[in-house]
Nucleic acid binder design. Sequence first.
DNA 1: AAAATAAATGCAAACGTTTGCATTTTGTAT
DNA 2: ATACAAAATGCAAACGTTTGCATTTATTTT
Lengths: 343, 343
Amino acid sequence: MAKKQTTIQDIAKTLSITASTVSRALNDHPKIKKSTKDTVWAKAKELNYQPNTIASSLRKGKAKTVGMIVPRINRHFFSNIITGVESVLNPAGYNLIICQSEEKYDKEINNINTLIANRVSGLLISISLETKNFDHIRRAISNNIAVVMYDRITEELNVSKVENDDISGSYDLTKHLIDEGYKDMMWIGGSRNFNTYRNRFEGYEKALKEIGIDANKYPIFEGSISLEAAYEYFKEYLENNKLPEVVFSASDYMAMGAIMAIQEKGFKIPDDVAISGYSNEPFAALINPKLTTVEQFSKEMGRSTARILLDEMESNKDENIPIKTILRPKLIVRESTINKKKL
Amino acid sequence: MAKKQTTIQDIAKTLSITASTVSRALNDHPKIKKSTKDTVWAKAKELNYQPNTIASSLRKGKAKTVGMIVPRINRHFFSNIITGVESVLNPAGYNLIICQSEEKYDKEINNINTLIANRVSGLLISISLETKNFDHIRRAISNNIAVVMYDRITEELNVSKVENDDISGSYDLTKHLIDEGYKDMMWIGGSRNFNTYRNRFEGYEKALKEIGIDANKYPIFEGSISLEAAYEYFKEYLENNKLPEVVFSASDYMAMGAIMAIQEKGFKIPDDVAISGYSNEPFAALINPKLTTVEQFSKEMGRSTARILLDEMESNKDENIPIKTILRPKLIVRESTINKKKL
DNA sequence: AAAATAAATGCAAACGTTTGCATTTTGTAT
DNA sequence: ATACAAAATGCAAACGTTTGCATTTATTTT
């Protein structure tokens, strides 16, 4: 079983030429004659030659591999980004090592260490919720790895970044809520230490300010971004408080938790209280009522991110000028925020 | 920026010992004195040494890497399997290269080629819907790569396999439907050329046979496993046919499509027609009515699969005896199949 | 204290490519 | 035919580890 793989040397030997020539022929080097290229290719096929990427990487000092760190792979938002990244990187001959940080700072550090050990050429990272210090990322950079941050970024690092325009996304959404005639609002979302949720709050705040309302006068729940957390919070909230007209949730999952608590109490959505989400998770179109939310074009985000990384990896400049890409999300209005009493 | 990474040689030089000793020290070789191990470790830390996995892999002829081929990463079922696999493989020092076949035979072949080129030690694969020929997998095997198939398997290959017991899963579910008093059924699902759907049909058939009914007398829709396909199909079906008492859907997504078409027509679930799904996708617990389905413990499936692979990779036997693991799924009864008229 | 054994380290080759430079072969101009 | 340039190939080192075997150093036995 453990049969020897055929190498460049084997091909060379049977053709009585050098390994160098074979190598160059296979890599389509301009100085190699067309005819020898052909014979080499033919022999390679015949001997079922499979190039040894490892040897090549060692010699070149870099692997045609990029590492991607993702908080959680089982969020649609992230798995779509991955798909987008692959659609750009694979055709370019790179493969992806995907690592999950599971929102843990320590795991993120481990991930980076293995990626450095694997001499990846590039690193794509969306930081975990716990990450406050960025020395591990700096270490990657100083190991000559091209780094691009996506979605969850930090201003502390001078690297290329791809973001969603969360401010305008939530501004547009809030505007829609106002247009529907809602005034009495409530914000729920993840920690605003995070660019994502900070910005989503900012857009909300901005739209309200335009009609003379201070967002901070309304209830704000800042918690862990999970269905369960929102459900528990709302269950308790409803015991002691009256409903707002509308709940602006900065996450579809949290919106879902709220909806379950609300419906359990016998309230109707959007009649008794309207609610919106963020991200357009697949279930948003499937639940009852269908959830108004914001589509983020995650696959496209993956593609942009990968394109930028590819550029930086293949440019032989020693230092790249970091660029910032901001993707504009799109409001998706569905039943959960339609005001039937309007006008 | 492009600063030289410190190598084992650098450490050796500053300590005036050999690279061999350093290598052995770092790998905790028994013949190395505790004291030198300590000094080597200290110096390694000091010089910020990052082992070069590539060099190591080249020398050893194998990378501490496993390739995983997945039809689609953005199905919860699969992304959970991935998480399970990682939870076993990462602590063992392996990393995962994940490839999506996107249900295409050609992509699957490409994936395998890059994995072979990367000299992965192991391969985890769930075949695409298009795959009928398995020579590419045989090629991997003959390149001395340990292979384990999960979920979507084939009997044509003599390798270890991890399956869900779809027969008993759907048997249990059908039994539940019968117990609820439903008799007039309908089956919808993916192509039965596929072990998964074939087995899910078999369990359904078996349970019906026990009460003297031939499953083939009832309507069967065998189509592409997507929400859209099922929606379209049902929309048309409802024009020309009367409702069955219950729809057995071999996929949550298809169930969802059916539900949307049914509710659009103004029918009530489960009052006018009951419906069940399969897989327990997250939305199944979120929709209205909540969907009865079958939980497959995908994370556990990933763990089992990885454990078996790990065994096969680390055993130095030349030939492993393939084992077959069958995981028992669990019925999850929710509102969508509760018969209010029962008794 | 010498001899024998055990423990620790060193030597050098190997893994399969790639690549700068040297050499050979081919083609062109005289 | 000769000289020269251009094109094609060869040579050999390098990438950073690992590892069988040889050698040195420390420990035990007599």
